[in-house]
Each structure stands twice: as C-alpha cells, then as structure tokens.
Amino acid sequence: MNRRQFLQLSVAALSALGLAGCSKSAPLRTGIHPWIGYEPLYLAEEFGWLPDSVRLVKHSAASDSMAGLLAGELDAAALTLDEALRVYAEGVPLRVVTVTNVSVGADVLVVKPSITSPAGLRGRPIAVELGGVSGIMLFSILERAGLSTDQVSLVDLPVNRHLSAWQNGDIEASVCYEPTASVLEQAGGTRLFDSSQVPDTIFDTLIVTEAAARRKPGAVRDLVYGYFRGQHHLVRSMHDAVYRVATRQGITPDSVRRSLATVMLPELAANQRYLAHHGRIEVVAKRLSGILVREGLMASHPVYERLCDPSFLPRSLS
C-alpha cells in the first residue's frame, strides 16, 4: 500500500465514521491558472473574500491543475469543460459547480487570406493545440464546415510556436487566442472564425472532485461564494478591477478591457440555468466527450448520472 492509498482509505474510514464535513482539518485545495475568466477568484483572494477553508494553488497552465487533480493533490480546479471531462475520463469523478465564463470570441481561427470560408480549410495544414481548448474549437469549426479531421492536415503545435510556423509557411491556418491572434493578423492573417460564432460551446468552469463535494461541502460553498463576490467586483467595479487584473497579468488596462469583451461572465441566475439537470453544460459535455472520444483525445466516455451540481451556488450576493 503506498501513501496515497493509505490516505484515501483513512479518509474513507473517517467519512464512514460520520466525520465528513470537518473542513477545519484541511482546506479545499483549488488549482488555478491565469485566465480572464478565473480573475474573480484572484480578486476574491486579494480582497480576503476566500476564507481559510479554501486555498488557491496557482499554476501557470491548465495541464498542471489537471495533473494535480489526477494525482489527488487537488480538491477543486478552474478548468474548461473539455479539460474537466478528460480528467473525469482518467478516473477522477468530478462535479461542475460554477460556470465562470463562456468564450465569445476569445478563441479565433486565423487563416491566410486565400481561405474565405471554413469549407476552404479542406486539405490545408492547420496549427492547433489539440490537448487544449483549441482542439474543441477546431472540431466545432470542422463540424460546421462539414469536414472531418481526415480531410484537413492537423499540425499539433503549442500556440506560442504558431507565429514562426506561420512565417515559415508551414501552416495556412491557426486556431489560437489572444495575443497570438492579433500577432497573426498583423502578419497578414484574417479572422475567419471565432468562438462567438459557436456560442455556448467553450465553457470555463469551477469543478470539484466528487470526494471533496461530499466531504467538504462547506468549503465548496465558500469557494463558489468567493468566486461570485470577485465576479461582482470585476463587473461592477471594473474601474478598479481592470487595474488589478492588468497588474497581475502584466498587461495594460486596455488589454484587460479587450479580454473581458471576449468572455461572458454568467451571473448567479445564468449559472443556475447552465448547471440545471440536462442543462446546457450537460448537453455540451455529452457532445464534447463524443468529439474527444471520436478524435482519440479521450479513451472513453466518463460515466456519470449528473455532471453539474448547482447546489453550491449561493442564493444571493449580500
């Protein structure tokens, strides 16, 4: 028995003894990485709106949070829906407790001017980071264009190397996001498609593990409440928030404003709708897992009865 199994068994034994919910012992470890949609959590932390029951574990990329969840080192994380599904498929049951933002133009398809429609992508080399959310974006575009992945040439490439590939002429299209998108446009590309054209598809969420939802419901509520207070500040006190976000991300306040324009930050009522049983998130999740399995990015469909759990949403912000 290794240490982790032992710990899991101990935790299971403790919860069997009815000691569940004693979140005093360990805080809810929440993985997070920089993204405009997750900024409310950073703001909440900055203003002290996250109690001791929640601890943010800051990573530089989503992959770290995913690894942390799989390793059992995290109880919760901020991830896109498809990332969450991948973690689920790897064997860590999760619940989506909050939709932080919906991408409305943050993800972009930049093409050579010769391509004028999605259908024109047939046979063209497309740079895409398949492991990330861009993959979903691309699959959605191809689905719209009536193309299959076989009919295009996929180049799996991290976004930060798209510019050089573009300049070398290795690719004729790129699925990317800011700031790469603007750079490619300056290099002669045109925006053919962005995520605002596939509304309600690319979701960023807060997810918690099934175990944490059972054992630390109070801490999960604290996390969600803190998030919404941060979101309130970001939206309602934008005059303050943009400077704080800019400071953290090292960009100008104007860039922050532009970034904010590419995401929708659903409020409480919208979250209730999204997370409802057979609501938008569960519908999209089914479609996404279909695509991910089909494209071989995920071994199998995660098995769950309910993916979303709106019960942790606060009734109101007061």
Partner: peptide, 17 residues
C-alpha cells in the same frame, strides 16, 4: 496599491471618475 497603468498613487480600490 500597486496598480499597473494607473497614473496616480492610490491607497484604496478605484471607482469611476
């Protein structure tokens, strides 16, 4: 407060002008 891009020294959070 350290707020990148804000031209003045400030001790509080910000509000609209």
């Amino acid at each position: 407060q350290s707020l990148a891009g804000f031209p003045f020294a400030v001790s509080t959070r910000l509000y609209p002008e």
